[in-house]
Amino acid sequence: MKGMTTIVKKTTQILAGIIFLYGAYVVIHGHLTPGGGFAGGVIMAGAFILVTLAFGGGFLNLKKEETGSTATENIAVLIVIILSLVGLFLGAKVFFLNFLPRGTVGELVSAGVLPLYNIFVGIEVTSSIFILFLALVIFKEEDT
């Protein structure tokens, strides 16, 4: 897949970073404002998809088997599961226990484990949506 015109490339250069940063903002502030892991992850994946569309598949060194992205996705899910299991082995022996100190409401570092869940879910969603995009769009053209 080849890239698009210079205008698109230049605009993408400016926008992609901002989109990615905004997605990261939504993920990190998931426990304070509407949004969270899934919504922010989709925005972050949007930045990757924009770059891939504008610069073509060769730019990101994409291969047929996206092992890197798949591994990221699986490891992020495993970390979420491990975080929830830690709650099982600490204190009250319940699953999904909020075992970290809660902090004060409204600050960035508060709400115990919720920001951690949000961050790893965000990573997972980013990589999985990027894989979906690659599987459905890019590799369709290669064979046949």
């Binding site: 798949t70 591994a71 699986n74 490891i75 899910v77 495993l78 599961i81």
Partner: peptide
């Protein structure tokens, strides 16, 4: 089983 599904993929 849920965790082992993802562990198998890794």
């Amino acid at each position: 089983p849920l965790a082992s599904a993802f562990l198998i993929m890794v």
